[in-house]
Simulated scan of single mutants.
Amino acid sequence: MHFGKYIAATALAISTMVTAVTAEPLKIALAETPSDELAAFFVALDRAKANGLDYEWTAFADEELAIQAILSGQMDIGFGTPYAAMQRSKAPLRIIFQLSKLKFFPVAVEEYTDLKQLDGHPIMLHSRGGGTDSIANVIEERIGIKFGERSYVPGSSNRVVAMLAGQAEATILDLSNKNKIIAEADDRFNVLPMFDVDASDEALFANLDWIKENSEQVDILVSALLSVWQDMSADPTIISRETNPDGPIGQLPAEILGELDGFYTEAVAGGLYDPNGGGRKAAQADLEWYTAAGQLDGNPAELNIEDFWYLAPLDAAAK
């Protein structure tokens, strides 16, 4: 009986030791299901795993749900640009890496060749208060125009269908759907020249307290991301070559996998990804953009980037 107690105590001690040296898996909140646009991120996850990072991911239906999952502590790191939540929430949310820039494309019927010509004309956007609504606000401010009635059709691909059906004269599309509508009907539509934007479309963020408590995991992930973003900048085909055929991206339809090289080549050439992970330049651009878009209060020149970004992991990876 005493011997049995000894075995039980020893087993408990071993179990405790294992728990102490094995960190909990990093819980990642995606803001969408895996797609071609997430292929580079999953390549980075594979590199991080090879360096000892244990992780699991959950795809939420949208960015707002991913933000709530981080705020509640249900997940550790999330996708999004939660500037309004950062300013209004008591939780110290911080961005640690810019995944992609705001590269959206105004597309209009052939009679329009310049954004200024859309002054007073209706435009079709994704959602009220969403990313494309913000872009429309900043276009109005920068170009000095005022769009007419705004209608809302969620999903870039759905707005392509509406444009092809003649239900709208102008919209804002992401890269892949801009390519799709021009490939299908380039004689009917123009992509209007747009000013350069360094602000973040997608970024990785987490609670600052959690980041500091789990700095080793965070450093492994950020280093892997930076290595992929830099390799991709030099050779976009690295993404298709390193995509795990048994992983979530490898399970996508063959026609999507066949276009990975084309997608990333064009995305890199178009400046969608910053090979330096954004950092201070992106943080300042974000404050200016999201203030103009109405998602941040205050003067961007007086806001402190360290209230929104935690730069230590990126600085360490850059060394």
Rank of each mutant, 00 (worst) to 15 (best):
290 Y>G: 09
171 T>W: 11
10 T>W: 12
21 V>T: 13
47 R>N: 09
152 Y>C: 07
205 F>D: 00
71 L>N: 03
128 R>D: 15
81 T>Y: 06
106 P>R: 07
113 T>Q: 13
43 V>G: 00
102 L>R: 14
88 R>S: 14
183 A>W: 04
46 D>L: 03
140 E>R: 09
230 Q>R: 12
180 K>N: 13
310 Y>M: 05
32 E>Y: 14
161 V>M: 05
143 I>T: 13
298 G>A: 11
146 K>G: 10
193 P>D: 09
208 L>N: 06
198 D>F: 12
190 N>R: 09
156 S>H: 15
3 F>Y: 07
155 G>P: 02
190 N>W: 09
214 N>M: 01
201 D>T: 06
311 L>E: 08
249 I>F: 03
25 P>S: 10
153 V>R: 04
101 K>A: 15
163 M>T: 05
221 L>M: 07
285 A>K: 06
19 T>H: 11
58 T>Q: 09
142 R>Q: 14
113 T>I: 11
225 L>Y: 04
131 G>N: 11
269 A>Q: 12
293 A>P: 07
216 E>W: 02
311 L>N: 02
235 D>A: 11
272 L>R: 08
6 Y>W: 11
118 L>K: 06
259 E>H: 00
55 Y>N: 05
125 L>C: 03
168 A>I: 02
186 D>E: 13
89 S>V: 06
270 G>V: 06
160 V>P: 04
136 A>N: 10
178 K>T: 13
316 A>N: 10
136 A>R: 10
263 F>N: 03
179 N>Q: 14
297 D>K: 14
156 S>Y: 14
223 S>G: 07
172 I>S: 04
151 S>M: 10
32 E>K: 14
48 A>W: 01
309 W>V: 09
226 L>G: 02
196 D>E: 14
191 V>E: 12
121 H>C: 08
65 L>A: 15
159 R>S: 08
113 T>N: 12
223 S>Y: 00
238 I>F: 02
18 V>N: 00
241 R>E: 14
95 I>K: 06
259 E>S: 05
235 D>K: 08
162 A>E: 11
244 N>A: 03
84 A>M: 13
300 P>M: 09
6 Y>I: 12
172 I>K: 02
184 E>V: 08
253 P>G: 08
267 A>L: 04
57 W>E: 04
43 V>A: 00
78 G>Y: 05
287 L>W: 09
168 A>N: 04
120 G>I: 05
94 R>G: 06
113 T>R: 12
310 Y>Q: 07
175 L>R: 09
37 E>W: 13
118 L>G: 09
48 A>M: 02
32 E>D: 15
256 I>P: 07
284 Q>R: 15
161 V>G: 01
125 L>A: 03
190 N>D: 06
230 Q>W: 01
94 R>K: 15
316 A>L: 11
280 R>M: 11
175 L>G: 08
101 K>G: 15
301 A>D: 14
